[in-house]
Design a binder for these strands. Sequence first.
DNA 1: CAAACTATTCAGC
DNA 2: GCTGAATAGTTTG
Length: 90
Amino acid sequence: MTSFAEKVYKAVLTIPLGEVRSYKWVAQRAGVGRAYQAVGQVLKRNPYPLIIPCHRVIKNNNKIGGYVFGVKQKKLLLELESKLARCLTG
DNA sequence: CAAACTATTCAGC
DNA sequence: GCTGAATAGTTTG
């Protein structure tokens, strides 16, 4: 875990349930704002893809970019969390 | 054409 | 192998 990754992870972990953000968003929260490319890299190379909600990080057009386990899993997770959020909030 | 965004690709330690 | 930056391609104005 490095200074950069730590910021990125914390920023990603702040993403609420059933919601998604973009690389630039995370990069800004991380304080880098200009390393959005590295954000994607850190996400796909993250040491713990299970504790890091990398599935909540997608492209700007709400489109799936990629996923460590597969884009299909990512889509499923997003739908699942969407329902879960409604269950918890509603 | 110009600007913005990107889960790719290259370089340094 | 991980981190950080640069490149090339697609989409929007």
